[in-house]
Simulated assay, not measured.
Amino acid sequence: MMILCAMFAAVTAILAQLEIPLPIVPISGQTLAVGITATILGSRYGALAMVCYMALGAIGLPVFAEAKGGLAILIGPTGGYIIGFILAAYFTGLILEKTMHTFAMALVANVVGMIVTLICGTIQLKIVLSLSWPEAMAAGVYPFIVVGLIKAFLASWIGIEVRKRLIHARLLNQVEEASA
Rank of each mutant, 00 (worst) to 15 (best):
M2G: 15
G42H: 07
Y90C: 09
F8E: 02
T12Y: 06
G84L: 07
I27T: 05
A55T: 02
M2C: 12
N110P: 08
A88S: 15
N110G: 11
V25S: 08
G46M: 04
S179L: 01
G159N: 06
L74K: 04
R163V: 09
I158F: 13
L61Y: 00
A180R: 12
V112H: 09
V147Q: 09
G121C: 09
N110Q: 12
L61G: 02
I119L: 15
M137N: 05
S179R: 10
P26G: 11
F64R: 02
A136Q: 06
A47N: 06
S132G: 14
S28F: 09
G113Q: 04
I115D: 10
F103R: 10
I59Q: 00
V116F: 11
V147F: 07
R163C: 08
G93K: 03
P21A: 13
A49P: 03
A38F: 02
M7W: 01
M1S: 14
L41D: 06
T78N: 09
C52R: 00
T37I: 07
A169G: 06
L94Y: 12
T39V: 07
G29V: 07
L149N: 09
F91L: 14
I36L: 05
K126I: 07
T122W: 08
M54G: 06
V111K: 04
A155G: 11
F8R: 01
G46P: 03
V11H: 10
S130M: 07
R44A: 15
K126E: 10
K164G: 12
S130F: 03
G113E: 04
P143V: 10
P26K: 04
P26A: 10
F144V: 05
A58Y: 01
I123L: 15
Y81C: 03
T31P: 01
I167W: 00
K98C: 12
H101S: 13
A138N: 12
G80E: 05
L48Q: 02
L74S: 03
R165P: 01
E176A: 13
I20L: 13
A178Q: 10
T117I: 09
T37Y: 11
A139H: 05
M2H: 09
I115Y: 06
G35A: 13
Q124H: 07
C120W: 12
C52A: 15
W157E: 05
Y142E: 04
Y90K: 05
A58C: 10
T92I: 13
I3N: 12
G93C: 03
L56A: 14
